[in-house]
Design a binder for these strands. Structure first.
Lengths: 137, 137
DNA sequence: GCGTTTTTTGACGTAAACGTCAACTCTTTT
DNA sequence: AAAAGAGTTGACGTTTACGTCAAAAAACGC
């Protein structure tokens, strides 16, 4: 009995495109850029569970404003454990840097939300003042 | 005595570039795109305190992954109160949408941080296992 | 078996966000 | 007055991240 009873589930390009709302061109582009590595059935691409997971991370990274190049570097952080692992401690350092970035971004976002809330309050005060004026006309 | 005792402080293009680590081309580009509106002293640009504040917001927005077009729409949220205010309630709606976006992003970032932490733990376990093996050699 | 749909491989096009000269103007320094 | 520095307007170039055909092969539905 071998340990390599891998989940054989795969997805066609169309399936992934529907699920994540991207075009085939996008997925092929990501493959070209080596962010995805679908296997082949003849000449058709078959995206593995791993590809799907990576795609999720790619799109998430994009929403955070990371470039594809940055994302490519980071993807490996999330997909160790497959095959032999070489530079674990170097990886940990990269992870730590990435983590700081994420945390910094989150904190800045938090601040931005606070700022916006403050602005909203000012605006609401202005609104109610104008309402007051109208009523007094 | 007029109310318009505005802070007359202005900045040259070079000053702002140094402070925010951007090139002159970038600031001119933002002006061209109507994100900034420096005044003129002859043919030289003079950036106002307002421009400086807007630039901060622009760069912040960029770090969050917003496009300049999106940022342009949002900038006005933070700079009401100057001159007459027209569509306050429409503005409040925009603000609310923007707020939701920011909150969603923050939450997703939080999740990403958690995921990363989990990965780090796995990696650390792998590291210590290898250390164990070495010791047992 | 045949039409329809999906997918593939090129190859060229494009929008966003600047970079990178070149050629001038203006101011400041020496 | 001459050189140096900072800033200005074009204008074309570049990178990123795909979009958009076209033509052909494969797979699917009946």
């Amino acid at each position: 009995m071998t340990m390599t009873e891998s989940t054989e589930q795969t997805f066609t390009i169309g399936e992934l495109c529907q699920e994540f709302d991207v075009t085939p061109r996008t997925l092929r582009f990501y493959e070209y850029k080596e962010l995805l590595a679908p296997i082949r059935d003849g000449q058709r691409r078959l995206f593995t569970v791993r590809d799907r997971a990576r795609l999720k991370l790619i799109l998430r990274g994009k929403r955070f404003g990371f470039s594809l190049a940055e994302i490519k570097d980071l993807l490996d952080l999330y997909h160790l454990g497959d095959g032999q692992v070489t530079q674990l401690s170097a990886t940990l350092e990269t992870a730590e840097r990435h983590r700081s970035e994420l945390v910094a971004k989150r904190d800045e976002l938090e601040a931005a939300i606070q700022d916006l809330d403050a602005q909203v309050k000012v605006t609401q005060r202005l609104l109610s003042e104008r309402a007051g004026l109208r009523a007094a006309e």
